[in-house]
């Protein structure tokens, strides 16, 4: 084999390798990877994970400063529905769940069963009263503890759109009310503005 033909074969082989590499890279299809759940998400201007995390975190920090919690009396709180007054399908329970777990971890608040979970609580309570259970080890009825405070709130939005710009403004309002006295012990408003230019 001459030197020239060897050179051609080597060149063709390297070109084929390059083409194969390009083809394989092109045929790879969509790639899936794990990302940081706390990283900023700006895929669209709809309510997203960053908004949820930001609002829940800011609300929790503000609530922990409320005198009724900061005093260390370990108040018992129940969460009520955060009303969704927007036209977006925002799972407001995800906001209160995140707040609840952060507040519990702080060790300064205890939570009583809320209205949404009440039926499941009663079902389990009643189930243990059945004859299949050892009554000495079963929980007893009439021992549930009522909350002293309730957390409630609402989320609203204002959407403005022109040909080139879409502006969305979210406002989350939350409050903590003494159930016995009806006195509002804490309230807070947090806002988010998201603007998308096309």
């Amino acid at each position: 084999m001459t030197r020239t033909s060897s050179f051609h074969i080597a060149r063709i082989a390297s070109l084929l390798s390059l083409a194969a590499a390009v083809a394989l890279a092109g045929c790879g299809g969509p790639k899936t990877r794990y990302g940081d759940a706390g990283s900023v998400e700006t895929v669209t201007n709809q309510f997203g994970s960053t908004d949820l995390q930001m609002l829940a975190e800011q609300m929790t920090q503000s609530m922990l400063q409320a005198p009724v919690i900061a005093s260390g009396n370990l108040p018992i709180v129940t969460t009520q529905e955060v009303k969704n007054k927007t036209s977006e399908y925002i799972d407001t329970r995800a906001i209160t769940n995140r707040m609840r777990s952060s507040l519990q971890k702080s060790g300064r608040v205890r939570f009583a069963v809320d209205q949404a979970e009440m039926q499941k609580q009663l079902d389990e309570l009643n189930r243990q009263q059945g004859e299949q259970y050892d009554q000495d080890k079963s929980v007893q009825q009439g021992r549930m503890v009522g909350a002293g405070y309730r957390v409630t709130g609402e989320i609203t939005s204002i959407v403005k759109e022109t040909k080139n710009v879409k502006d969305v403004y979210y406002q989350l309002f939350m409050s903590l009310t003494n159930i016995q006295t009806g006195i509002e012990e804490w309230s807070e408003t947090k806002d988010i503005r998201k603007t998308t230019e096309r």
Partner: peptide
Amino acid sequence: LAGFVYEALGEPGLAAPGYRT
């Protein structure tokens, strides 16, 4: 229908935007 299903499953926070839309 979204409003109706969310309401049936005890999720008024998600039912409201369904009815509103």
